[in-house]
Design a protein around this nucleic acid. Sequence first.
DNA 1: TATATTTAATTACAAAAAGTAACTTAAAAT
DNA 2: ATTTTAAGTTACTTTTTGTAATTAAATATA
Lengths: 101, 101
Amino acid sequence: MNETTLCPRLAKAMDLIGKRWTGLILYQLLDGSQRFNEIESALPVSGRLLSERLKELEKEGLVERKVYSEVPVRVEYSLTEKGRALEGAIRNIESWATNWL
Amino acid sequence: MNETTLCPRLAKAMDLIGKRWTGLILYQLLDGSQRFNEIESALPVSGRLLSERLKELEKEGLVERKVYSEVPVRVEYSLTEKGRALEGAIRNIESWATNWL
DNA sequence: TATATTTAATTACAAAAAGTAACTTAAAAT
DNA sequence: ATTTTAAGTTACTTTTTGTAATTAAATATA
């Protein structure tokens, strides 16, 4: 495998948001801040991977994690500005899916 | 894992174009019809997976495969209308990548 | 004090997908 | 018969995912 890529930034974007479940997680978060279990229930993703993906998205600055020290603990995830900036792209894919699938 | 998904069509789209390398393969084909080796050289994808992905994309009707019986054989891949319809979404991601990565 | 409850994870292990490199096929030129 | 070249395929290793059980934390309850 060579390492020449036409557009390294697009490659990184694809690697990030093209990772399994990530697109759907972001789509789900377009509806607003949500807690861990809400996202887990809304998507066919297991807790293990949801946790992993949310960590990646947080690290990349697309998602913000907020802990509320209630009983039991409540953790809410929401899109940052960088994450919300993907809304157009996601809506575009959604619209393609509606028209072509 | 549950199976309830807000938008089954978006889920399918994400499963398809979110598969590793698929986004970049489509992006590469936006430049026009290209042969197997051209795509393989342009992207950090191995022949094994490129072959697999192109087959999936052909099966889903996003890509067309044309064989030219020259010596040695020439095989060209190009986007169908359905595939080209993704251009907006891909450009959108590209533009996000430029602005945010 | 010990046990129960609830959300948000983490761990352990099996299964599937991806990475890597060598090999095969086909068709014609030497 | 051997060589050449593009387009794959195969065999094998490594990484990622799927699944289910387990842990952590903070309080309420017996």
